[in-house]
Computed example of a mutant assay.
Amino acid sequence: MPDKQLYSGHCHCGAVRFTARTDLEGMGDCNCSRCRRLGWIMQSVSEADFTLEAGADHLTTYRFNTEMIDHLFCRTCGIESFAQGSDGKGNRMYMINVNCLENPPPVDHGAIKHWDGANF
């Protein structure tokens, strides 16, 4: 398993900025009505590995379906660079949008995990 690296990410306008420490193992996509439209590539990170650096005051929340995930959008440019929720054990987790990272490694789309959110 590769070592975790620190990545910086942001929304389109740069108002919302974050850092996340991850090895980018386990990237995935989802076919639910929302993710399918957004074209997200997701990577989960623990609360300890995520820092919101700027833009908390620019975030607006959207919840749907089970309303267990806070989908956080920049109110200026509309980009969702990350979401937050909890894992099955109640631990705070973040789902970062790999497409919002600065200088991410190339993504092998054939190797990412596919989540069947449409039938969840």
Rank of each mutant, 00 (worst) to 15 (best):
D3K: 11
D3Y: 11
K4I: 15
K4E: 14
K4R: 13
L6E: 12
Y7M: 06
Y7Q: 06
S8M: 08
G9V: 01
G9Q: 00
H10L: 02
H12M: 04
C13E: 06
C13T: 09
V16C: 02
F18Y: 13
T19R: 10
R21S: 05
T22V: 05
D23A: 05
D23Q: 12
L24D: 05
L24V: 12
E25K: 06
G26Y: 07
G26T: 04
M27T: 03
G28P: 03
D29N: 09
C30P: 00
C30I: 01
C30F: 00
C32W: 00
S33N: 12
R36D: 13
R37W: 13
L38R: 14
G39D: 06
W40Y: 15
I41W: 00
I41G: 02
M42C: 10
M42H: 14
M42D: 04
S44A: 14
V45A: 11
S46F: 14
S46M: 03
E47M: 13
E47V: 12
E47G: 09
A48T: 14
F50A: 11
F50W: 12
L52V: 14
E53D: 15
G55V: 02
A56N: 11
D57F: 12
D57R: 10
D57M: 11
H58Y: 12
T61H: 04
Y62W: 12
R63D: 10
F64Q: 01
T66L: 15
M68S: 13
D70T: 08
D70N: 12
H71W: 03
L72S: 05
F73T: 02
C74H: 00
C74I: 04
C77S: 10
C77P: 04
I79M: 02
I79V: 07
E80D: 11
E80A: 00
F82T: 00
Q84V: 07
G85P: 03
G85M: 02
S86F: 13
S86W: 09
G88I: 13
G88A: 15
K89A: 11
K89Y: 07
G90H: 09
N91S: 12
N91W: 10
N91Y: 14
M93V: 09
M93C: 11
M93H: 07
Y94I: 11
Y94Q: 07
Y94V: 08
Y94G: 04
Y94F: 13
I96C: 04
V98F: 00
V98N: 01
N99R: 14
C100R: 01
C100Y: 01
L101V: 13
L101N: 02
E102I: 10
E102G: 05
P104S: 15
P106G: 09
